[in-house]
Design a protein around this nucleic acid. Structure first.
Lengths: 237, 237
DNA sequence: CAGTGGTCTAGACCACGAG
DNA sequence: TCGTGGTCTAGACCACTGG
């Protein structure tokens, strides 16, 4: 780090972070130990304190460091690591995998909210919202089956949309920015409807994704996505 | 934003980010539109450019903005949002839920790598690694069943460990910091062993977590975790 | 109460890439 | 080519919180 990397475009903060990470991984600094403070490191690395700060913040965000005012910076004892999943538009995901995309709306109704869905949305059960069921296909084979509830009251200033023909997934992503979102993964045995929609057998284990979004008005939409058998949701780092 | 928030400890960069987010969510700025450049916003918000930069970087990391040199900053058309899951130590997760933790090692062997595991690790099949099977309990009920392979060669400078008695999950977290990790969620029907370990029935849908870590030497460990039926992995935002 | 990280600022130079 | 974001710096003040 004393030598300047010739021709490198890597930000100095990243280089410092990498060097600190190396000292941790190669056990020069052990879990629980306190490391030099920002000013010392700034001198060592020939950088401004702000740059060292940025580097250490990166590592703290990764869960590798534990930083506290006055107490200093320590190597985390239990590095709580994080996995980040990107939630792309289904169509892009399918086309990105080199398959052709298809989409079919199986049902659109204005229906009273069942108890469990109302709970997810934080609304009263029995209220009538838009209920939508659709299947996304990749190369003609079912990829995901989504069961979605939409709250039109949370979508002011937009034309009424015919979700029987429009792709709700894409329309919402593009037209309903949200402030808060909730997300959960679980597994479930396919019920008869899941099985029919995904062209598989009842009882088949399915990865279930549940997602709800809110804006300043209230809940926008909640969706339960059943993925085709064998689907893997992956994250790097 | 012109008025200074009296007594607020919220960083100015966060306030700016919140205001920009509001303009997006309330459709003052529409998807695809270009927003004022950093210098203009700095003037409007009475902040330094670096502060505005930090705020906009936050939103870009969220996937809400699309920033490019020379081209400026635009509201993302397809906001690819992210969900972040924290991977805690199992014991802390269980105790954090108010349950008592239990742990039992069901088997420890030095075995030749099966084809599929070797592939995950990027090693040659047939090589002999440490193979470990263990169950984590919450209030006496099975919580997770883990099937783990450990590469001792990637753990130099540490005493040999008796994983028959030590909790591998915790020992590795604390003693084997890694440089890269891989992670995937999927669903599977419980096979006979899964069912026995988790005290449930074969065929039951289980959430499967698969995780592999590497350091500068090579693969450290790979684990397949089968969660008890009904388990939900949640993320906020 | 004093040491440490958290944040902001004004200014600067540079890299990228759209036009 | 040149406007825009990316990054760094030196310096400053402040907010925590451990001792």
């Amino acid at each position: 780090m004393t030598e300047r990397q010739a021709g490198s475009t890597t930000p100095k903060a990243h280089l410092i972070a990498a060097e600190v990470r190396r000292r941790i991984v190669e056990r020069e600094w052990l879990q629980g130990e306190r490391i030099p403070d920002e000013v010392e490191l700034a001198v060592e690395f020939g950088a401004a304190r702000a740059t060292v700060n940025k580097a250490l913040q990166l590592l703290a965000d990764e869960g590798l460091l534990d930083r506290r005012r006055r107490a200093g910076t320590r190597i985390a004892i239990n590095p709580v690591r994080k996995a980040t999943f990107e939630i792309p538009i289904v169509r892009e995901q399918i086309e990105g995998a080199g398959m052709s995309y298809g989409h079919r709306v199986m049902a659109v109704h204005r229906s009273p909210l069942p108890e469990d869905v109302a709970l997810r949305l934080g609304m009263a059960a029995g209220q009538r919202l838009l209920h939508l069921r659709a299947v996304h296909y990749g190369d003609g084979r079912p990829f995901q089956y989504e069961d979605r509830w939409i709250n039109p009251a949370a979508l002011p200033g937009t034309e009424p949309v015919d979700f029987g023909h429009v792709n709700a997934n894409e329309w919402l992503v593009r037209n309903a920015p949200y402030l808060r979102a909730d997300m959960a993964f679980s597994a479930a045995n396919a019920d008869r409807r899941d099985a029919r929609m995904l062209q598989t057998d009842p009882g088949q284990a399915l990865l279930i994704l549940q997602r709800t979004t809110w804006n300043e008005i209230g809940a926008i939409t909640t969706v339960r996505v059943a993925c085709h058998p064998g689907y893997r949701m992956t994250a790097a780092n």
